[in-house]
Amino acid sequence: MNVAGNWRLQQQRYRLVGEECEKCGTLIFPPRDLCPECEAPAKMPYVFSGQGEVYSYSTIYSPPRGFEEFAPYTVALIRLKEGPMLTAQLTDVESDKVYIGMPVEMVTRKIQGGDEGNPIVYGYKFRPAHLG
């Protein structure tokens, strides 16, 4: 368990804090400190709304280590309303109800429950918009 590594990413994981390029206005998530459009330094925090839609998705039945307790679970590429795309799990939805273009909203959930000896990792997942 990478304790410091997870701690370092809390702001983006808990509440979608990304960045805004002060030069060209591009909104950036995940944060990368450099504008992907104009290459200018971009460190101004920008909190994303958490609204978006499903770009594509798949359901995982054979999870990697550390995710067994959640299987089966659906993962998706989410296009945020503000533009950027991210990868996240969907939650509170049956996999056969998911479709490309489905409106979704961000919630903060357990990403990894950890075994008894490790910290719990919390972060963004997405569920159907308006509670589904």
Partner: peptide
């Protein structure tokens, strides 16, 4: 609670 929910996630929402 769902498998990815606990008092933290409930409290946050």
């Amino acid at each position: 609670a769902g498998p990815d929910e606990d008092v933290v996630t409930i409290s946050i929402e």
